[in-house]
Computed example of a mutant assay.
Amino acid sequence: MLFVTVDEQPNPGMMGIYNDSFIEEYKEFTDKIHKFDTNIILQIVYGGSQTNFNVGERIILGPSAVAHRIYGVTPKEATKEDIRGLIESFADDSLRAKKSGFDGVQFHAAHGYIYSQFLSPYYNKRTDEYGENIENRARIIFETLAAVRRKVGRDFPVLIKINYSDFIEDGFSFEDCKYVCKRLEELGIDAIEISGVVGDKTEDRTVREKGLKYLENESYFRKYAAEIAEELNVPVILVGGNRSLNLMDEIVNNTKIQYFSLSRPLLREPGLINRWGGGDNSKAKCVSCGKCGDVQGNSCIFNRTSRK
């Protein structure tokens, strides 16, 4: 995940793609990936008020001046000029991704970041064309997709990551999500990744807090992703707790979900997909402890060597 504007790094150690100086280095990186006959899609994001990094040293935009429920950061309400600038940043950075050899781009509209907040009535109190009803709250996303398409063309894959719900009162709802996904399909999105993480105490963790010791607790957003997939023709990607190949096979065979996202399991086992491909279908070794995040770089605690 890369940040899109020079003055908006939401997390320490996070990489950016906000000017052309990144292209050569990222091209070297994607060339190495392509040697393994695989594709790589770049995820880009504007974090907004969901941050505690250098908060007093930069302007942080939001749909409205509503304090973040966890971090307590109150952003500056984005002007229409700010919104246009943000949209153009996403578009310019998508073109940079294409020039850098990435095989597509995904813009992040989930997990409480700024586009997620525009979708949420809790954070979005605007009364202009970017607020109030769901069509307006999603307008920035629809306009971003159009701007990205103008830059990269129709043949470069453009994806989105979106919550199916925010799990908070006056938040983004499942019905809102289905509406936005249908509109994105009409507007030419290539694939939609369904998530549900917002970094909030009221988040629905009824399954996630139990851990993933039992098969029924895995792939915990599948019910909602499957319902959305039934109403779309574009591919739907399921993220969250995907740990067992047999369960994912079952989901593929019994729903319209076509793809799966994994992150933490690959930190524990970088060769997991090759292991499954070689016939060892046993469950991923990841125990979903959530301790892989580190300011020095994400890594599995079971694989870390001592650091000075």
Rank of each mutant, 00 (worst) to 15 (best):
E209A: 12
A110C: 07
A109V: 01
I33L: 11
I134Q: 04
N54H: 13
A147N: 05
A78Y: 01
E203P: 10
E8G: 02
V252Y: 15
K291S: 12
I160M: 05
L145R: 09
S306M: 13
E57Q: 02
Y164P: 11
I251Y: 09
A146C: 02
I237S: 06
G85V: 00
E209N: 14
I192Y: 10
F118H: 05
K285E: 13
S165R: 14
K151L: 05
Q258H: 11
I83S: 08
D176M: 07
H111T: 05
N39P: 02
G16T: 04
R243P: 09
F107K: 08
G293V: 08
K182P: 04
D166A: 03
I87H: 02
R275T: 03
S89R: 02
Q258P: 06
P270C: 04
Q43C: 01
G112Y: 00
N39Y: 13
Q43H: 10
R243L: 15
V4D: 09
V198W: 09
G13S: 01
G104T: 07
F156H: 14
K161I: 03
Y18L: 03
Y214H: 12
V295H: 13
D37M: 10
I141H: 00
I17V: 09
L187A: 03
L215P: 06
K151A: 05
Y130P: 04
A67Y: 05
T51S: 11
K98N: 11
G279D: 08
E231Y: 12
F221A: 06
V287W: 05
H111D: 04
E250D: 13
